[in-house]
Write a protein that binds this DNA or RNA. Structure first.
Length: 153
DNA sequence: GCCAACGTTGGC
DNA sequence: GCCAACGTTGGC
């Protein structure tokens, strides 16, 4: 069992939307590193920290779970789709995704500011690394546990 | 294969 | 709205 953090802009798709839909294909990832995490390393049942980016304040909003094996992101084939990729094709698909299932909101929102106050424990937490732009990143088990404890604090 | 130009992310 | 970081593109 592995743990992940996935970013989304709440104006586009936030934790409330996930709660409403329950399960959602995590489409639109167009970064190879992020894709590789989904395609090569995610397993059904893995834990996901649902992070709100590009909002005030940014932070972790809830918990979700990987709900499918990786499969081809359908939006890459659709010329009308925002995430259409003309270099992708049905026989040579570039982008894969997984479905994400809603588990729960955090009891309280953990802002990026607050997380930054714990860099002593959250060393090498990718989210806190300078210049980090990855939308999908691995979370170590100890960090996962620590963050869920912070929620109670 | 190098690298400058350009585009995107995302915090501030 | 600014800008740092950094990935991608394309000319050579």
């Amino acid at each position: 069992m592995a743990y992940w953090l996935m970013k989304s802009e709440p104006d586009v798709f936030g934790i409330d939307d996930l709660k409403r839909n329950q399960v959602e294909p995590w489409d639109g990832v167009r970064n190879y590193q992020a894709r590789n995490f989904m395609r090569d390393h995610m397993q059904v049942g893995d834990g996901v920290l649902f992070y709100h980016s590009n909002t005030k304040p940014p932070g972790i909003a809830g918990i979700a779970e990987v709900a499918s094996k990786p499969y081809d992101d359908p939006t890459q084939f659709d010329p009308e789709a925002k995430y259409f990729d003309p270099k992708s094709s049905l026989d040579k698909p570039r982008w894969q995704l997984v479905d994400i299932k809603y588990i729960r909101h955090l009891q309280r929102y953990l802002s990026l500011d607050e997380l930054k106050q714990h860099t002593d424990v959250l060393t090498d937490f990718p989210l806190l690394r300078k210049g980090n732009r990855l939308s999908v990143m691995p979370v170590e088990a100890e960090h996962w546990q620590y963050i869920l404890n912070l929620e109670q604090a």
